[in-house]
């Protein structure tokens, strides 16, 4: 990617966010067909311009600062129905999916002050909260995570000043690269996220040798790196 330019996302109002026609299906074909394209409108702008914060990030910040009920309602209206679909595609029944959605949104409200728009998009942050709650719900296990405040935590190196993408820009490029994956690679990645199964179980589910699944994952990673303009 040319270092002089950044890609800025055009934030659409909540009601105009693109969704795909719902397609029912089971197994790999269904899972892949059910993934709506994540490609978003974008335009190339001069790097000197600040890119606008996505409105969902603003909503979480408003919740943290002002305990803003309207902001929380808007966030809920967008994400709760999508979280429910996401959990149901992973095999949860509607009642269980709804329960985890509620727990996720409780955490969004309570942990809003821990959200850092410089580190993650709203959808990324909410996904990670929901994922942890699903692990707890399904397996009664904790999901250990690093602690940024730990004295032994090794911080990120200073950026070198070249081609630094914002979190939102990078996320958009990752999603575009994902949309463009060949179907066999996309199927494996999609099943991993939806069904929360280790890749070894996905291999048996698809009737594929473990090595085939591993190489599809690695090829997908290569494409994502190359979508971010990195050498693969």
């Amino acid at each position: 990617m040319d270092g002089c330019f950044v890609i800025e996302r055009e934030a659409a109002p909540v009601s105009e966010r693109p969704t795909s026609p719902h397609r029912k299906g089971s197994g790999v074909e269904g899972a892949v067909a059910a993934v709506a394209p994540m490609r978003l409108a974008r335009r190339v702008v001069d790097k000197d311009r600040e890119s606008v914060l996505d409105e969902f990030e603003d909503l979480i910040v408003a919740i943290a600062r002002k305990r803003d009920r309207a902001a929380f309602r808007a966030l809920f209206d967008h994400f709760a129905p999508r979280l429910k679909t996401f959990f149901m595609r992973g095999g949860l029944d509607p009642a269980a999916a709804e329960e985890i959605v509620q727990e996720t949104m409780v955490k969004v409200w309570r942990k809003a002050d821990q959200f850092d728009p410089a580190k993650a998009k709203a959808s990324t942050w909410i996904f990670s909260i929901g994922r942890n709650l699903r692990v707890d719900f399904l397996r009664k296990e904790k999901r250990p995570q690093p602690d940024f405040n730990d004295p032994m935590f090794v911080p990120d190196p200073e950026p070198d000043g070249f081609e630094v993408l914002s979190v939102a820009q990078e996320a958009d490029l990752v999603r575009e690269a994902f949309d463009a994956l060949p179907p066999d690679q996309k199927a494996v990645m999609t099943l991993a996220f939806y069904e929360e199964k280790p890749h070894s179980e996905i291999a048996s589910e698809l009737g594929l040798p473990l090595g085939t699944v591993k190489s599809r994952i690695r090829l997908a990673f290569q494409r994502i790196r190359s979508g971010l303009g990195e050498s693969v």
């Binding site: 969704t19 795909s20 026609p21 719902h22 059910a34 993934v35 709506a36 394209p37 994540m38 309602r73 809920f76 209206d77 994400f79 709760a80 129905p81 999508r82 979280l83 429910k84 679909t85 996401f86 149901m88 595609r89 509607p94 999916a97 709804e98 959605v101 509620q102 580190k119 993650a120 998009k121 959808s123 990324t124 942050w125 909410i126 996904f127 990670s128 929901g130 994922r131 979190v167 990078e170 996320a171 990752v174 999603r175 994902f178 990645m189 999609t190 996220f193 939806y194 994502i224 971010l228």
Partner: peptide
């Protein structure tokens, strides 16, 4: 972080489900 952005994108692109009555 990139993988989580991908997971967030999948969740965000999911067709909205109908929530239970009075969910909010």
């Amino acid at each position: 972080a990139r993988l989580e952005a991908m997971g967030g994108g999948m969740m965000d692109a999911a067709e909205p489900a109908t929530l239970a009555d009075n969910s909010f």
